[in-house]
Design a protein around this nucleic acid. Structure first.
Length: 118
RNA sequence: CAAGUAGAACAGGUCAUCGCGGCUGCAGCAGUGCAGGUGAGGAAAGUCCGGGCUUCACAGGGCAGGAUGCCGGAUAACGUCCGGUGGAGGUGACUCCAAGGCCAGUGCAACAGAAAUAUACCGCCCCGUUCCCUUCAGGGAGCGCCGGGUAAGGGUGGAAAGGCAGCGCAAGAGACUACCGUCCGGCCGGCAACGGCCGGAGCCAUGUAAACCCCAUCCGAAGCAAGACCAAAAAGAAGACCAUAGGUUUGCCCGGCCUGUCUUCAGGUAGGUCGCUGGAGGUGUCCGGCGACGGGCACCCUAGAUAGAUGAUGACCCACGACAUAACCCGGCUUAUCGUUCUGCUUGCAAG
RNA sequence: CGGGGUGUGGCUCAGUUUGGUUAGAGCGCCGCCUUAGGGAGGCGGAGGCCGCAAGUUCGAAUCUUGUCACUCCGA
């Protein structure tokens, strides 16, 4: 991803959980917190309750792919944590993409005109 | 053709676009960019065993604890595998078995039953005695406070002192006899487990060791977050620099101590590098072996991430896609799994 | 990577050590009594293949092995 890094440390995740705002739908939960940097940092969390290793990796890839393909319309300087809910295990790319963009719209972190144009 | 049985292989494919982790090459001081090539499984899973490797411990032996348990072999090793033996199931191909020892000792066996490791409740028989019948041989019925024999029959139970048939007897009993079984001894075959044959028995006597236990064999402990190296930081040691700033020791001076600066050593946190993939490795072929497996030769190199890489979209085909993601590496076991293909063998039916 | 624990009526737990006849307790549920009615109280009742599968034993919730799920601890 050209403009983004990933969150790695436990304390970075804790910071977003405690200092950020959150929205959720059936498949995903999104936490957002400004980080004061030029770039975005994104963390994806898929708990063991979602499924086994294959399912968890697949969900994480779908979320990452969705973000990658729409990276250009996101605002900069954000820390985001996206948590997958158990119902996300059964769905495909289209649903995950829709959920991600829906939550981003609620957070007002994407450029709406580009989103509409898309 | 149908049903079954044993074994083996495969685990969606092709194309296009976007994207990810190593590697190689080129460019660049560097961040990085471009190109090429490569990138999960039969179970990668569960972590149930075994080994390698690493660190620690260790003269040797024993105890404790744990594991294994018919015999022989394979192997680095195993609780795995192969070949046998015995037993169980199946018409059969074939499958399954924790399959050492309760005459070393101890424990336990509810309920039922007269009695559970020793027993006489009913029954059967003998003896004594009373009464009745009587053809004077005997027969029948009752009694025995505590007379005796018997384990055939009854019933209980998982189990009641081998089974069955005969002989025998007052009634009975391996008391005796044949067969079967069990145990003991001998001979033969086999490396052995064991099998076969012959002879004998005082058939002295339940089950349970996945009850304690006994016997035989094996096991030092921990695990790649093992461990090795580099190394900010924090705390530490030694030395030097003060003709020196501050504090303290006594009012002052010298001297001492602390703070200071530098060097060296030690240390090992954050972080980094190695361990990290060429191996008890694969594929083919030949040889030895019934086989597990072993040996020779040729060829091949096939993930190595470190919050952790395989995905998305579109098109076509088909069987319409199951289970499941390496994390130091191997050998097994167990469990999950939509299906497809092939081979050996068995049984049944039909036809030739 | 290593180690431990738990699974029993709808819920919370006993019983497993040392196998034994029909597995108990509380709350909940159902019926009846009581009340004008409800609650409380009293009486009675239903509800369990003891997580699953094999095995040992005459007999298994209990013993053994395998397996599944949940959960805790350490590095």
């Amino acid at each position: 991803m050209r403009f983004s890094e990933s969150l790695k440390k436990t304390h970075q995740f804790q910071s977003v959980y405690q200092g950020g705002r959150s929205y959720a739908d059936r498949y995903l939960v999104m936490y957002v917190k400004p980080n004061g940097l030029e770039i975005n940092r994104i963390g994806i969390s898929v708990s063991k309750k979602v499924g086994n290793s294959v399912v968890r990796h697949r969900v994480a890839r779908l979320v990452r792919e969705s973000y990658r393909l729409h990276e250009s319309i996101f605002n900069s300087g954000l820390d985001m944590v996206i948590v997958a809910r158990p119902s996300a295990a059964a769905v495909g790319y289209k649903e995950v993409e829709g959920a991600l963009l829906h939550l981003a719209k609620l957070h007002q972190v994407i450029r709406i005109f580009l989103y509409m144009d898309h």
